[in-house]
Design a binder for these strands. Structure first.
Lengths: 142, 142
DNA sequence: GTCCATAATGAGAATCAGAATCAACGCGCC
DNA sequence: GGCGCGTTGATTCTGATTCTCATTATGGAC
């Protein structure tokens, strides 16, 4: 039987208030900062559970950390992620789904699953980067 | 200046003789088994260099390990990977490239890059799995 | 061929994310 | 309210990867 604990709820809520992907470690710090006495192991367990139940998406950061984010349950989708601020947009990819299955079948593969994530700079961060371009770091003047 | 050492060459060669993705750890063991005295740190450095130079592809396994594989340099491509035996097929994905850029642009994102990998069971492993189905592990007989 | 500066190496320590352990706690059912 | 057992959290452990630093050996100059 699955029990409903405030810790699990706190993790779910903390995840929901975040618009981008967060690591288990930083989610734990955040919860501790809000006065919660939740343990790190519990955060890991709760996140793993949420991911299994389809209430959270997970992906690996460049550094190999697992990052999590609340998502629409029971629906397969992909992400468009700002590599600067972490802003995440859920995108549908029916075309890519079909393509992935076709490619797999063409090569004799069965039980195809796929990882499709798009990284970029969101409009805000693009604007900021453009502003920074006004005073770029000078190249070696030699 | 980049120097040419036999260690770096050994890593490149070991990577090339492998048809699937291998972890740094197992590549190191393999090299030691062949009598090489190469160090683990060196294997990591060599793999990181190869990845930067585009001579190797890397991805994260389920367990968070970094896996590497020799690849055609200077060419963007994706992978169809057998989740049982690790067999890897390079696939082209022009359609997906275009789709990724369009989706990014539609959402105001710039500098789009993407991660597209397809996992499945290769023909061989599918056949093996089917054979195993003949004598499945019995469910609880109660 | 020899010399030299320095990039690269390798053994081991350090670091870090995450999993495992286990006694204590507390939720849900009776 | 009592009980059983699922959950928690402090701690320890593990395993991958990175860092450190003395040593080695490459490649260019001569």
């Amino acid at each position: 039987m699955k029990r409903n604990t405030w810790q699990r709820e706190a993790v779910r809520e903390a995840l929901g208030t975040n618009e981008g992907f967060v690591s288990a470690q930083s989610l734990h710090s955040t919860l501790r900062e809000t006065g919660s006495s939740i343990g790190l192991a519990t955060v890991y367990r709760a996140l793993a559970d949420l991911a299994v139940e389809g209430e959270a998406d997970s992906l690996q950061s460049d550094q190999g950390e697992s990052l999590y984010r609340a998502c629409t349950p029971g629906q397969h989708h992909h992400h468009l992620i700002c590599r600067n601020c972490g802003l995440t947009v859920e995108i549908e990819a029916d075309a890519v789904e079909a393509w992935a299955h076709r490619v797999a079948a063409d090569n004799g593969f069965t039980q195809a699953s796929h990882v499709v994530d798009v990284f970029g700079l969101c409009a805000t961060c693009t604007a900021q980067a453009a502003a920074a371009q006004v005073a770029p770091a000078p190249a070696s003047p030699l």
